[in-house]
Structures are given as structure tokens and as C-alpha cells.
Design a protein around this nucleic acid. Sequence first.
DNA 1: TATTGTTATACTCTATAACTATA
DNA 2: TATAGTTATAGAGTATAACAATA
Lengths: 147, 147
Amino acid sequence: MDKQNVFVDPLRQFPGYLLRRISSATMAELSAGLAKLKLRPTEASILIVIEAQPGMTQSEIGRLLSIQRANMTPLAARLEARELLCRWQVDGRSSGLVLTAHGAAAAVKAREIMEGCERRMIERIPRQYRQAYLAALQALWESESKM
Amino acid sequence: MDKQNVFVDPLRQFPGYLLRRISSATMAELSAGLAKLKLRPTEASILIVIEAQPGMTQSEIGRLLSIQRANMTPLAARLEARELLCRWQVDGRSSGLVLTAHGAAAAVKAREIMEGCERRMIERIPRQYRQAYLAALQALWESESKM
DNA sequence: TATTGTTATACTCTATAACTATA
DNA sequence: TATAGTTATAGAGTATAACAATA
């Protein structure tokens, strides 16, 4: 017997709860995929942001990804120690982050893994709902970033 | 100037990434709301599940909510210590969890807070996308629970 | 043998406060 | 004064392994 389905889940009617569960399952799948590169989702997202806009500082990346300054420090240090990125001094207090060749290659692979996860997620949604689903996520994201 | 919008976010095109960001923002809002009851989202979800189906055991609740047995122990102990729930022995190794009067009142309030969060989230989505958005989340959840 | 509940432990993510150095 | 980066620290959530007691 499938023990998981013996009981009714009263939270199932809450879309925000579904969002949370779906997000954590998706993140677990992404983590497993990125493990091949020894990258965590947050690290991969940082590489991809630097790839798109080389020279961003830690603070700028943190603001973009909602990662606090204090938490960016060990993340950037770890990526630098692995020689995936390097810094060039912007002024006395900040440096722009740039990918090394090794880091650029990792960013490409990480993006491919993310795209695979995204594709598999979309394919689990009935075709007729997909466009509105994506539009709804965009709308939620827009309104969130204005709060 | 709005520093957050000076840079393009290359991850914005990934719906799974948006899902993660939206989920964490929603959870932060819910946490703030539930703080009035001194409940965390996970604790509130446990109370609501017991409210719907009194007598479920820790393991059963854990399977329903994807919380591991080992992590259910301190959660249930904390709720019991606050006299929000009590146990009645099912057999030698497990007990069914039931809400106290105090716990039942907390579950009602927690559900109201959750419903308020849900409503505000839905209202941020343009009306024409809402139904498909909900259907897509249901589909993702169904396919997830079959993995 | 399988399951329940427990303990111990560890890692990730997140959050805050305080410090320095620079602008 | 405000900002960048850092350090230290703490709280959540999550994960695994191992154990005793029970089915």
C-alpha cells in the first residue's frame, strides 16, 4: 500500500503551499544535477550572473539574487579558491568579479543542467496551462520585486 | 536610483528560478504573519494536518508533508511542550497526535493567516492567468508525488 | 525483518550585528 | 554619512546514520 496517499492533505488546496513543495522538489533535483560539477544552486546562479555581466561586484550580485552581503563573502571566496572566478580591483573597497576560463566552462555546463531541469518541469504541466503559468510567475516576480 | 534594477538578471528566464524566488518571498511573508502566534510555517502545517485528521502519528504526518521522521521528533515535542497537541498511545511504539483546545484555536488562526497570504498572492496575478496557474501547480504537484 | 521514535550530527541557507576601510 | 566587504554568530530546514523498542 502507498502510505503517502492514505491520508488527505488539507494543505493541498493552498497554492502557496504547493509552490513551496514544488520548489523544494525542483531544487533537490537541480542540486543533484549540479553535484556533478560540485556546485550548489546558489553558486551556479552566481556564476551565471557573472557570465552575463562580468565585473559585477559582490554587493551588486547579492542585490540581484537576494543574497545578503554577509553571505556573499564565503560564497565568492569559495568560488575564487576553486579558481572559477577572479577579482579585479574597482576602487579601494570593491572588486569586480570575472569568470576564469575554468569558471566560464562551469557556467556553461551549469546553465545546461538548469535548462534540463526547467524543461522537465515544464513538460510535467499540461500543454494548455503552460503559457499562463509562465505569465503568472512573471507577474508574481514583477510584483514581488516592487515590494 | 534603484540599484536592484541596474543589472539584467539572466536567471529571470528560468521559471524554476522564479518559482524559488517567489516561494521564498511568500514563505517570508507567511513566517512574519505566523510570528504573531509564535508558530513557524512547518509547525502551522502540522497543526492544520492534525486538525483535519486527529490521531495521525508522527511518521504519517512526516510522510504527508515530506518531513523526515528524525526531524518530526523535535517539532512534535515542541508543540507538545507548548500544549498545542497531546498524544494518545496507539501501540507500543507510536502515538496518535491530537490537538488540545489551545492547539485547535491556534490551528484556526494559523489557517486564517495562511489564507490571507494565499489571497494576496493570487491577487498579484492578472485575473486571466489565475485558473491555469492553479491547474499547473496541481499538475506539478501530482506528478511530483508520483516520483 | 520492517517500522516507530529517538539521538546525534552536519550541511545549507538565511539573518543580524558589529567592525574596517573606503567613498 | 553611506557603502563594500568582512567576521562572528544564530536560527531554521534538511539529511544521514545508528540505536532501542515494538510489530
